[in-house]
Amino acid sequence: MGVITDNLGLYADGLLGTLEICGLVAVAALLLGIFLAGFRVSPVPPLRAVGTVYVTLVRNCPLTIVLFVFAFGLPEVGINGAYITFGVAGLTVYTAAFVCEAVRSGIGAVDAGQAEAARAIGLTFSQSLRLVVLPQALWAVLPPLGSVAIAMIKNSAILGAFGVGGELYSVANTLNSARGEPALPVYTGVVIGYLIIIIPAGLLLLMMEKRLKATR
């Protein structure tokens, strides 16, 4: 296990890199996902169709292919960017579909009487969604969003396999493939790194679920 302690700095940098990528993706995917969820419950048929098609396509497509399309498809039509940008964008587009479904189910969990009351006092669709339903949906939506976030953190490892440097997974590549360090400790270190993020996140999620059950 000397490899891990000798390269603690490298692992720490990787951990930070992963957190940085995940932070960016979390914010962007949350915004895009909420937007899409709004589309999916809207009274305007074309918008609903956009939401449905987006979710169906993206959820059924492997993240790897989404990433390849971004990094090697977009440049074909003259859209260029840094590799990390494409990676973050691809992961965002992918995650947003799952955020959308989580938010939609959250909207569904709000008591129907709430929306009815909002309409009764004359609020429009967007007002009742913004002022009455979504704030309440927020609580119901937190646990499924938490699961999406954890899945997203794990998916970010694919970016590393894809060639985006500076995150946790790429540390294994540097140490094992490029420097020839033994595989077992190198990969164990990476696994520990992910567990450092995932396990507290999972516990947080569990606590949220418990509290939610209690308030109901």
């Binding site: 794990k154 396999a161 595989a183 990969y187 990476v190 696994v191 999972g202």
Partner: peptide, 22 residues
Amino acid sequence: VEILRGVPVVIAIFFAYQVLPT
């Protein structure tokens, strides 16, 4: 179970690919 649930699939695959043969 908790450990395996926290490991990204891509890492599980590379783990098998790089570690098992050694």
